[in-house]
């Protein structure tokens, strides 16, 4: 009896591991593995024509934050890198903010439609996803370029005399990323709003809450999980965005993604690229921790 139970337990254990295997394989080879390689590369010496030489070096990490003057060897902060870090964080935050401002009413609108209409609206949100990222980005480019739709329209109705220079600015990058990542905000927001019990909103009005109070005290705390998820889904890929800043920023407004690509490409400095990648990861993790803690404190009340 006891023996039987032990055999069964052992078999169950084995089955459990078997069932876990696919997930473990993916985690090891697709997530942890590449990360580990990147980490190792960041401590190696750059090869002459790309690649790495297997010699330990902290040059790459040094170069992420500092630069040595070519002539007199004085040390200074790597302004170019730091300004790119700063721009990446700034543009990603602005994109996230814009996605909240645009996505919240959109999700609310869809969630308050009759049930059989909601799928249609969600389909409209999803359609851009089926189009290639480059094509979508070029479409936005067409809208905002100097001879583009927006400028032509504004000039025709006489609001402006000369075309607005939007393309190849930071604004253009934000517009581009906003367009690409907005659905990632709308989807989780909609999911949490759809579960929202609208009698709670009525209860709010019934208890003398104005529209603003109902939004602030009832709707926002209740859809907070969706808001956090959406913000993370927009902020993280924005920080590492590569195609959009490249096309919309015209190569002048580099973001972290472009800087990393540069090191692996023309720069032929793989260790620096690897170090920058790890830095990006660190920024994302710090931002996420900070965001989750702040968001958790606000709504939790006494929690």
């Amino acid at each position: 009896m006891n023996n039987l139970a032990r055999i069964r337990e052992r078999r169950e254990n084995r089955n459990r591991w078997l069932l876990l295997t696919p997930a473990l394989v993916i985690l090891i080879f697709a997530a942890s593995g590449p990360l580990l390689i990147t980490l190792v590369y960041s401590f190696l010496t750059a090869g002459d024509y790309g690649g790495v030489k297997w010699e330990f070096s902290t040059d790459a990490w040094f170069n992420v934050f500092f630069q040595r003057d070519i002539f007199d060897d004085t040390l200074s902060f790597a302004d170019a890198h730091l300004s790119i870090f700063w721009r990446s964080v700034k543009l990603s935050l602005l994109t996230t903010l814009g996605a909240v401002v645009l996505g919240f009413p959109t999700a609310y609108f869809i969630a308050t439609r009759p049930k059989h209409h909601r799928d249609f609206w969600m389909l409209l949100i999803m359609i851009p996803f089926w189009t290639n990222l480059l094509i979508r980005t070029f479409a936005v480019m067409e809208l905002i370029r100097n001879e583009g739709t927006l400028n032509t329209f504004l000039m025709t109705i006489g609001v402006i005399d000369a075309p607005l220079q939007i393309l190849f600015t930071e604004t253009a990058i934000i517009i581009g990323m906003l367009y690409v990542y907005l659905p990632l905000m709308v989807l989780p927001l909609y999911a949490s709003m759809e579960r929202l019990d609208f009698s709670l909103i009525e209860a709010g009005y019934d208890l003398y809450a104005s529209r603003v109070s109902v939004l602030r005290r009832i709707i926002l705390p209740l859809v907070k999980p969706g808001l956090i998820a959406g913000s993370i889904l927009v902020f993280v890929p924005s920080l590492g965005a590569y195609v959009t800043p490249r096309v919309m920023g015209g190569g002048k407004q580099l973001m972290l993604g472009n800087l990393i690509e540069l090191q692996f490409g023309q720069g032929r400095n793989w260790p620096l690229g690897a170090a920058l990648s790890i830095t990006l990861l660190a920024i994302v993790m710090v931002a996420l921790l900070f965001y989750v803690r702040v968001a958790g404190r606000e709504g939790g009340g006494h929690g």
Binding site: E202, G204, P221
Partner: peptide
């Protein structure tokens, strides 16, 4: 309210 509609976050 029929389902009470108590605020779940409070």
């Amino acid at each position: 309210f029929q389902n009470y509609a108590l605020f779940p976050h409070l």
